[in-house]
Write a protein that binds this DNA or RNA. Structure first.
Lengths: 142, 142
DNA sequence: TATTGTTATACTCTATAACTATA
DNA sequence: TATAGTTATAGAGTATAACAATA
């Protein structure tokens, strides 16, 4: 009645999601290393590129992170030269976070690398299986 | 060229996996609250029930956690009365971690609650979709 | 010498509270 | 008064190093 030791864990959805995510995060981190970014920082750049202008708070909300977390994230990206803080003329309380030329360039290249890694990661599922997995995850959370 | 703001994140596999996992973890935690457990602790109980005897180190390896992490995990479960440490007679360096009666009882009930939550969580995918998602994740990591 | 469990310590990630400047 | 950004701080979660007991 105890269950098969070999799948007591792999039968758990939580375990599967966690370890799938860990494996992907590691693979993405390796692929992005040449660009001096991790996946989370790349997501910040992508959010900033997709919508303009975006204040720190607005960007944080899009990303689902706390505004204090966003401060550190922008600090890092600014140190790396990928973004710049600019005071909003309309509301001087706000920082508009702007991609630099290097930021845009790195975003484009790093996004391509991320796409490749994701495709490799999902390769075991076949083309159709990969598409279905993404669709399923979007249905659950997107 | 920047991409649609609405799916710059939901098009990222890492984001989808992370947020799916966060949502499930929260749902499982809520469901297990009456049992005084979280999903990770329940996984420990399940591993211990599936294979016996298991030392702390062996259990930690099954779970993929550090042995120092395992110490704290067993401490908590022991405080809650779900497991007991027993010195191995064959090798007195080892702690055999044993489920108590309360541990076995709680394991059974909590596993049922976890199963229900997972089914509800996956309900938007339909029966077939849910089975396929789990199969896909197992193919990627299991 | 090597292994198991333990403790102390540190590091990452994140959130809460309090401060500042602006509105 | 309320909001945006910042800082300080604290809480999880986890890993590394060192130690005690045992092999």
């Amino acid at each position: 009645m105890a269950g098969d030791p070999s799948d007591v864990l792999t039968g758990r959805l939580g375990y599967l999601l966690k370890h799938t995510q860990l494996a992907l995060t590691a693979a993405v981190a390796r692929a992005l290393e040449p660009f001096g970014l991790d996946g989370r920082e790349l997501a910040v750049l992508a959010v900033l590129a997709a919508e303009y202008p975006l204040s720190q708070l607005a960007a944080a909300e899009r990303l689902g992170v706390d505004r204090t977390t966003m401060v550190a994230l922008v600090d890092v990206l600014e140190d790396k030269g990928f973004v710049e803080r600019r005071r909003s003329p309309e509301d001087r309380r706000k920082n508009i976070v702007e991609l630099t030329e290097a930021g845009r360039d790195t975003l484009e290249k790093a996004e391509r690398a991320r796409g490749e890694v994701e495709r490799e990661f999902l390769a075991p599922l076949g083309k159709g299986g990969a598409v279905k997995l993404v669709a399923a995850l979007r249905a659950l959370v997107g």
